[in-house]
C-alpha cells in the first residue's frame, strides 16, 4: 500500500497551520513544511539563531554566510522580517510567543512525552534548541516520516525508552499513516491513510488508539 511521502506529510502539516501563525521548523523533515505553504496564506517562520521571516534558500551565487538557519544552511529573509540576538530569540520560544513548533521524533508517548535528541552510542550528546521549543511553544507537532522504525518497532508508544526531550509536550503526531491528536484521554486518530484499516494502524502503534467519529481519509499525492 502506498503511504504518504515526506512531501505529502509536509503538505498536510502546512495546511493545518493558521494564517498569520509564528512557526518554528526543526532541522530535517520539518523544514519541508516551508515548501508547501498553501497559496494566499502567510506564516512567519522563526529561526532560533535570530531570524523572523525566514525565506527559502537562495541561489548558490547569492548565499550570504551571515544569513543562515538553525541547520547552518544559507537562507533569505522575507519582507517584514527581523534579526535579533539569541536571548531574545529564545525568549520568543520560552516565553510562549511561538504558535507552533514542528519537530522530528524518535519516540512519542501516549501522554505526549517526546524523545528526539539522544540515541545510544559513543557520540557526544547534542540538544540544540529542542528542549526549549517543547517547553515553550503553544503547540508542538511531531512529524514521523514512517509510523514505525526500520525494524518495525513502533515510534508511537505507551512510554518512551530513550532520553526525554520534554514531558507531556506533544499535541499532534503526523506520520505516513495517520494524523493523531494527543489528548488528556489518550491518542485520537483524526485522519487515516485511505485503505488502511483501524486495526492495521493499531497493530503498528505501541499505545491504545481511539478513532474520531469523523476520521478522514489521507490520500497520497499521485506524482
Amino acid at each position: 500500500m502506498k503511504t504518504l511521502s515526506a512531501a505529502d506529510i509536509a503538505r498536510r502539516v502546512a495546511a493545518d497551520i493558521a494564517d498569520g501563525a509564528y512557526v518554528n521548523l526543526g532541522i530535517g523533515m520539518p523544514m519541508l513544511v516551508a515548501d508547501h505553504v498553501p497559496p494566499g496564506r502567510e506564516f512567519v517562520l522563526h529561526s532560533e539563531n535570530g531570524l523572523l521571516g525566514m525565506g527559502p534558500a537562495p541561489d548558490v551565487a547569492d548565499a550570504d554566510p551571515d544569513l543562515i538557519n538553525a541547520g547552518k544552511q544559507p537562507v533569505t529573509i522575507r519582507p517584514g522580517g527581523s534579526y535579533f540576538h539569541h536571548a531574545d530569540s529564545f525568549a520568543m520560544i520560552r516565553g510562549g510567543h511561538i504558535d507552533v513548533s514542528i519537530l522530528g521524533g524518535y519516540e512519542v508517548a501516549a501522554n505526549g512525552d517526546l524523545a528526539n535528541w539522544a540515541l545510544p552510542g559513543p557520540k557526544p550528546p547534542a540538544v540544540g534548541g529542542a528542549m526549549d521549543l517543547v517547553a515553550g511553544a503553544k503547540q508542538v507537532w511531531v512529524m514521523l516520516s514512517s509510523h514505525v522504525a526500520k525494524d518495525g518497532t513502533p515510534k508511537v508508544v505507551e512510554r518512551c525508552t530513550l532520553p526525554l526531550t520534554g514531558l507531556a509536550c506533544v499535541n499532534r503526531i503526523y506520520s505516513d499513516l495517520a494524523v493523531i491528536d494527543v489528548t488528556a484521554a489518550g491518542l485520537v486518530v483524526t485522519d487515516l491513510l485511505a485503505g488502511l484499516e483501524p486495526g492495521q494502524l493499531q497493530a503498528q502503534t505501541g499505545a491504545p488508539l481511539r478513532f474520531a467519529d469523523a476520521c478522514r481519509p489521507l490520500q497520497p499525492e499521485t506524482a
Binding site: 529564545f90 520560552r94 550528546p125 540538544v127 528542549m131
Partner: peptide, 12 residues
C-alpha cells in the same frame, strides 16, 4: 569535558 546545555537555557 563537556557540559551540554539546552540552547535557550545557555543564552538565558
Amino acid at each position: 569535558a563537556l557540559e551540554i546545555v539546552p540552547q535557550g537555557t545557555l543564552a538565558e
